[in-house]
């Protein structure tokens, strides 16, 4: 019974947070254009209805099985990401001893799923998005793994609940200050937003989603928002102490921290400019990766 209740709770959480991100995006777009937002709270729902009323597009000879599976799997991976995180000390859906290793698998499988999404439409622009995304998605994964391993050092465990418990005295965001910013960049990459939008960007007419409309598009856009939510939930737990906090009950703290992380992520995704994929690849290997090494050494010396 707890299994079903927790599953329902996490799916509801994903839907709610996806709506929240869409509202934030709408507000941000309105502010940038200097106009008053129209029905900001209901707008995401209107958009859902609009997309659902569309016809599902088809191309000549697509790989239809993979084309339909890719958005569903992407959303499912986001779901397994949040399943690692406990609402409170007693309730965790996936009580995996090696939680952050599974998170690494989620990142790796996300690259596969996004590639499949771009590949299976049999369309040039989608493929360009897919190839670009692999170039960025693979090396970014290393950074997030280093950052999560650094967080596992003081906890002496790879399980997310134990990592949360290790932050009773001091949150990791203070103890290991580089971790959260580096991890947020990963979040932008996993949901390809802003500076890391190499899969679905406007310069290739929507990239992997260029040919997608109707219900598959709705699932795809939801999955992107859900993946950002998963990153924010893991970040809130690994760096901001998750459900830990005074006065309020644990789940409330988790939701508050996740919304705060999401606010920062959405802000970053709208503020930072994008550079060309080859430059970004060089930047990741030569700047961000050494930074994460540095971060690991810092965390290691502190944990001794």
């Amino acid at each position: 019974m707890t299994l079903i209740a927790l599953t329902v709770a996490w799916v509801a959480f994903l839907l709610g947070m996806a709506w929240y991100i869409a509202v934030l995006d709408g507000l941000w777009a309105a502010a940038r254009e200097g106009r008053a937002p129209r029905a900001p709270l209901a707008n995401p729902l209107y958009r859902c209805a609009t997309i659902l009323r569309q016809q599902s597009n088809l191309t000549e000879a697509p790989d239809l099985l993979n084309w339909r599976l890719a958005p569903a799997l992407y959303a499912g991976l986001a779901g397994t990401g949040v399943a690692l995180v406990p609402f409170s000390s007693a309730s965790v859906l996936a009580d995996l001893e090696v939680g952050i290793v599974w998170w690494g698998a989620v990142e790796a499988l996300t690259v596969v799923v996004v590639f499949l999404h771009g590949w299976s439409a049999n369309s040039q622009l989608g493929l360009i998005g897919a190839y670009r995304y692999v170039a960025i998605g693979l090396p970014v994964m290393l950074i997030s793994m280093f950052v999560l391993i650094a967080a596992a050092l003081p906890a002496e465990s790879l399980a997310v609940p134990k990592i949360i418990e290790s932050q009773r005295e001091l949150w990791n965001v203070i103890r290991q200050p580089l971790g959260l910013p580096l991890f947020l960049l990963l979040g932008l990459s996993l949901s390809f937003r802003g500076p890391f939008n190499y899969a679905d960007s406007a310069d290739i007419a929507g990239g992997t989603a260029a040919e997608v409309s109707g219900a598959p598009r709705l699932v795809w856009e939801f999955a992107r928002l859900a993946m950002l939510t998963a990153v924010a939930t893991v970040a809130a737990s690994v760096f901001l102490g998750g459900y830990l906090g005074p006065w309020l009950p644990g789940p409330v703290w988790l939701v508050l921290k996740t919304t705060a992380v999401l606010l920062v992520s959405v802000g970053l995704s709208h503020q930072l400019a994008r550079i060309s994929p080859s430059r970004m690849m060089t930047l990741i290997w030569t700047v961000l990766l050494p930074l994460s090494f540095l971060h690991l050494v810092w965390a290691g010396v502190l944990a001794l």
Binding site: W102, A108, L109, V112, F115
Partner: peptide
Amino acid sequence: IATVFMMAVEMM
């Protein structure tokens, strides 16, 4: 689990 992530990357 490590097999899953290593192999996902390698097969990509």
